[in-house]
Design a protein around this nucleic acid. Structure first.
Lengths: 191, 191
DNA sequence: CGATAAGTGAAATGTGCGTTCCAGTTGATT
DNA sequence: AATCAACTGGAACGCACATTTCACTTATCG
């Protein structure tokens, strides 16, 4: 496929687009951030119009920002699945997922009414990867099989969201979640 | 204390106030409900102004509605503490708490930026009751003691919230949560 | 350079929502 | 029935945001 030659893009516009993306990404990790276009613009000394235009709308900007955060996480999940046993992948990944949610508190908070296609797709990838881990772990006998696999996945996802919503989010709380979740997911009579 | 004699209150105003409260309460249990003053008003055929005036503001209306839902739950928690052992109270109450969240999906969803004093107070009561259950259950040896009690309470509360946010909320999911949570909360080497 | 299209941001516009106004209506009291 | 304060709801207002406009600026290229 050939890169379609659109109208010329000026270097400063490209740089401003990058600045806006970084500002949005930074705000996503701050608990009380307002996440308005003006707030994002002010953070890098741009006008609101410039920020919006660079992405064609606020939704697209946030979609890009969230996707940028999610992408490495999805890659990590896939890598773990390839490198190690499902059980170990599940344990390691859950720890990292909860740490991610603790660090990027705002990622799932104010995003309710927005249309974020790339983010939605990445989330689906994440769910698929976790399902694979659970499926494998069940086969290995380290995860209980008396629950529906899909329900188990949802449970894990919602648990991750819950960590992000705690006030304040703390690593201690995330650790407690992980401990309880993993113990609760074990087969009722396993070591 | 004597009831302060304010201006006369007409019967239809009292009735409309009640209608508005019921409409708000009903909307709180509907997943996709918009929860705007207009939506509440339209539901009972009143004007938006009337609905707002009856409570002195949207926040006060929702505070009353949510409190009305929460009150029986708090009473139930206290009753269980008085009637039975902490362990049994914890198990029974958790099941009912999750059922409540499943039924009243919207209660915690769109309420972020609002000021709800009565609701906040009731929530604190609820937290206190659950803390008491956990404390007692720990003493009875049915809940693990390697986690901070406060963290354990937060964990339970966030789990309840997570149930409400699932799409769609189902009793099956709530049951799965309960199973995993209770198994995970047991001391690592208990039956 | 000089020409010109791309880019910029302050201000204008549009939208959704809670709240307030006010002219008209209605329940209560005598 | 007559009076009057309480009540009502459509319209106006205020506010917070996202988005668009447009006169001005600036990077880019011959």
């Amino acid at each position: 496929m050939s890169t379609p030659t659109g109208p010329r893009r000026r270097a400063d516009a490209v740089r401003n687009r990058q600045l806006a993306l970084e500002a949005a990404t930074a705000l996503l990790s701050e608990p009380g951030a307002s996440l308005t276009v003006e707030a994002i613009a002010k953070r890098v000394g741009l006008g609101a119009a410039t920020v919006v235009r660079a992405f064609g709308g606020k939704d697209a900007l946030l979609d890009a920002a969230v996707s940028g955060l999610l992408e490495p996480l999805v890659r990590r999940a896939r890598d773990l699945l390839a490198e190690t046993t499902p059980t170990r992948a599940l344990h390691v990944f859950l720890r990292e997922l909860l740490a991610f949610q603790t660090a990027h508190h705002g990622v799932n908070d104010q995003l309710g009414g927005l249309d974020l296609p790339a983010t939605t797709a990445l989330r689906a990838d994440l769910v698929r990867a976790v399902e694979e881990m659970i499926d494998g772990a069940r086969r290995e006998g380290t995860v209980r099989t008396d629950l529906d696999p899909g329900v188990t996945t949802t449970l894990i996802g919602q648990t991750a969201l819950a960590v992000a919503r705690a006030q304040p989010p703390s690593q201690e709380l995330a650790d407690a979640y992980l401990t309880v979740l993993l113990d609760g997911l074990r087969p009722p009579s396993a070591p």
